[in-house]
Design a protein around this nucleic acid. Structure first.
Lengths: 358, 358
DNA sequence: AACGTTCTCGTAAACGTTTACAAGAACGAT
DNA sequence: ATCGTTCTTGTAAACGTTTACGAGAACGTT
C-alpha cells in the first residue's frame, strides 16, 4: 500500500498535474473543484504522501507539541499525572514531549531557554523547588506555561495547585475523631514546595483541633522516596510511640507500614496510617492505606486544558485553579477492619465542592 | 538578561554587521576570524538569540527527537523503562516524545504512519501484541525502529527482548529446590507477547523439573493489572491449594499476596510467591516479593542505545539482543524469614552472563 | 614581484510547506 | 454583448535555518 520513498508536495503536484498550491489546498480541505480534488487525493494516496511536520511547523509557527517537565519520575503520582496530561494533550491533537528535569531549578531554567528554540508550543511544569530565578524565567518565557503547584503571590501565571493544607486537615480530623492523640508526621524535605505546604498544613490542623504537638512526632525524610521513608520511620519509632502517622506521600506511607509491621505494630489498631496523593500503590498493600487524594489526575487534566485554552486564546485572563482534596479511607485507618475487610471497601469523604475544572 | 522578543539569524547578523552565513558558522563552531566570532557572539548574547529548532530541522532533516511508544502506562515496568530511555536519549542530545498507544496494534500503526511525517528521527516500540500488519508497517517504515520484545523469526529489525522462558526457569528452579510441588501460575492474557512467552516458559520449566502440572493450577488474568490479579487469585484459590505461586507480573503478584493474606495463608510458609519484572513495588510490600528480573531497565537502555547507534550509522548490521534474567530473592519465598527478616536483605542469583550491552 | 595556496566571508539556493496575490474562467445580470 | 461578481487555480514569496559556491584577502613560495 504505502510507498516507502519520501514524497513531497511537488511530487504529488506533478502526478496530479496541478500546482503545489492546489495540492496543499485540497489536503487542507480548502475549497477546490471536484476534478482537482479527486486527482490530488488519488495522487497523494498512490504516493503514500504524508506532509512533513517540520516544514509545516516552520511555516505556521506551531509545532503541535507540548512539553511536560516532571521533577521526579519514579514517584507514582507524577506518573499518573503524566499519563493524564498525555491523554488530554493527545485528544487535542498535540504530541507530548517529556523532559525529566531533576529537582534542580537550574535544570528547569535550561529547559526553559531551550524551550524558546521553539520545539514546543507550550509547557506544563511541576517544580519541586521554585526559586526567584525560575520565576523570572517563567515570566520572561515567550510561550505559554502552566505551572502545577503553588506559586508565590503576585505571579500571574496560569496554574493549578492542590490544597495540601486542607488535605492535612481532612487527615487530622479523621484521625482525631478516632481519639488518636499522638499523631506523628513523616514529611519529605521541607525546602520543597510540597514539603513546606504539608508541614504548615499539619501544624495548622493540629492547632485547630487542639492536639498537642511534640517535636518527637515529626521527622523529615531526605526525599520523597520509599528508601528515605524507611529510614525516617525507624527514626520516628526510635524516639516516640505514635498512635497515628500521617505521611506526606504514599511512598513514605508504604515505607512506614513496612517498618511498623516489622516492629510488630498492628495497623490500624495500634497505629493508624494515612498517606497522601492517593496513588495506586495505596491500595496494593495489606492493609491498604488511607490516603489524602490531592486530585493529582484532576490537577494534571486541568493544567493540560488550561494550556490548550491559552494556546487557542493567548489573551485569556490568567487562571489559577485550586483543586480540593478528598480523603480516601482504606483499611489502614479503619478501626476494627484490620485484615479481613469487605473486598475493595472504599468510602470517600469530600472536603468541599466547588472544584473548578477550567 | 535574555530578551523576550524572538530574534532570528538576520537580527543577529545586522547587529554584528556580518552576513547570516557568518553568524550561522560562528554559532556552529565552524572556523571564523576572531573579530567576526567576537562580534557575533556578543550580538547573539545581547539579543538572547536561540536558534529555531524547526527551521534547523527542516534544513538538516533531523528533528533530534526520538519517539517512544509504550503500550501500557500504569504498569510500573513500562514507567521504569521510559525513565531509562529518557535518560539515555537525553544524554545523546535527543528529546523524548512519548506516545502512549493503547495495546491495540492499530493504534501503533497509526503512530507509525504519523511518524513518517517526520516529527521524530526514530522510534522505540514495545508492542503488547504484534500482528502481521504491524510487522509490515514496521518494515516499511522510512525511519529506524527498535523493538522491545520478541519478534517473529525472520524479521530483521533491531530489537532487544527478555528471556522470560529462562526467567521462568529460574523461578521454578528456586521453588522446586524448596520442595514446592504444587506450583501455580497466574498469567496475564495469553494472546499477548509476554503472556505467551511466560506460559511456554512455565510449561517448559515444569516439565524439565518433572513437576506435575494441573490445569487447576493455572489461571489467566484479564490483563496485567492489580485488579485483574485479585480476581484471578480468588479463582485460583477457589479451585486449588498451591504451595507456591508464580505470577507473570509484579502487579499480579502483589494482588496474589493481598488475597493470600486475606485468606489467612502465610507467605512464604504456606505458599511461596514469585513475581516478575522486579519492579519497585516488589520491595514495598510485606513480605517483600521475590521477583524475576527480566532486565527491564537494561532492555530499555540497550534499546535506546541501539536506536542511537542506527541513527549514527544507518547501515550497521541488524542487532537482536537478548537480556538474561536474574532472580531477585526476597521474603516472599525465603523459608523461615517470614516477617522479621534482616533489613533489606537481597540476594541475587544470576542465570548466565554474557549480556550484550550494544 | 608574481603566482599559487589557503582562509575568510558574503551571496544565494535549498529544505517542504502555507498563503497573499493576481490572473483567468465561469457565471449571472443588465 | 458587456460588465461586474464570484470561483478556481497558478505564481511566488515567506518561514529561519544550513551550506555549496565563488570572490577576494592574506599569506607563503619561488
Amino acid at each position: 500500500m504505502a510507498e516507502t520513498r519520501k514524497s513531497t508536495l511537488v511530487l504529488v503536484a506533478e502526478r496530479a498535474g496541478v500546482s503545489i498550491a492546489s495540492v496543499s489546498r485540497v489536503l487542507n480541505g480548502l475549497p477546490a473543484s471536484t476534478s482537482v480534488t479527486e486527482r490530488v487525493q488519488q495522487a497523494a494516496a498512490e504516493l503514500g504522501y504524508v506532509p512533513d511536520a517540520t516544514a509545516r511547523s516552520l511555516k505556521v509557527g506551531k509545532t503541535e507539541q507540548i512539553a511536560l517537565a516532571v521533577a521526579d519520575v519514579g514517584n507514582p503520582v507524577y506518573v499518573a499525572m503524566m499519563h493524564e496530561v498525555s491523554r488530554v494533550v493527545a485528544d487535542a491533537g498535540y504530541r507530548l514531549v517529556v523532559s525529566s528535569t531533576g529537582s534542580d531549578p537550574d535544570d528547569q531554567i535550561t529547559l526553559l531557554t531551550s524551550l524558546n528554540r521553539g520545539f514546543a508550543d507550550g509547557l506544563i511544569l511541576s517544580p519541586l523547588r521554585v526559586t526567584e530565578a525560575l520565576i523570572d524565567h517563567l515570566r520572561a518565557s515567550r510561550l505559554p506555561i502552566v505551572v502545577i503547584g503553588s506559586l508565590p503571590a503576585g505571579v500571574d501565571l496560569d496554574s493549578v495547585r492542590a490544597d495540601s493544607a486542607a488535605g492535612m486537615g481532612l487527615a487530622i480530623k479523621h484521625l482525631a475523631k478516632q481519639g488518636r492523640q499522638r499523631i506523628a508526621f513523616i514529611n519529605g524535605p521541607v525546602d520543597t514546595v510540597p514539603g513546606a505546604a504539608r508541614l504548615s498544613g499539619y501544624t495548622l490542623a493540629m492547632a485547630k483541633r487542639g492536639i498537642a504537638m511534640h517535636g518527637d512526632l515529626q521527622v523529615n525524610a531526605d526525599d520523597f522516596t520509599f528508601k528515605a521513608g524507611l529510614v525516617a520511620t525507624e527514626a520516628l519509632l526510635d524516639q516516640a510511640t505514635p498512635d497515628a502517622i500521617v505521611c506526606a506521600n504514599d511512598l513514605l506511607a508504604v515505607a512506614a507500614l513496612k517498618v511498623l509491621t516489622r516492629r510488630g505494630f498492628s495497623v490500624p489498631n495500634d497505629v493508624a496510617l494515612v498517606g497522601m496523593d492517593d496513588t495506586d500503590i495505596a491500595e496494593l498493600t495489606t492493609p491498604s492505606i488511607t490516603s489524602v487524594n490531592l486530585g493529582s489526575v484532576k490537577r494534571a487534566r486541568t493544567a493540560a486544558k488550561l494550556l490548550i485554552r491559552r494556546l487557542n486564546e493567548p489573551d485569556a485572563p490568567v487562571k489559577q485553579v485550586v483543586i480540593e482534596p478528598k480523603l480516601t479511607i482504606r483499611e489502614s485507618s479503619m478501626i476494627g477492619a484490620a485484615a479481613t475487610p469487605a473486598t475493595d471497601s472504599r468510602s470517600v469523604v469530600s472536603h468541599s465542592s466547588g472544584g473548578d475544572d477550567a
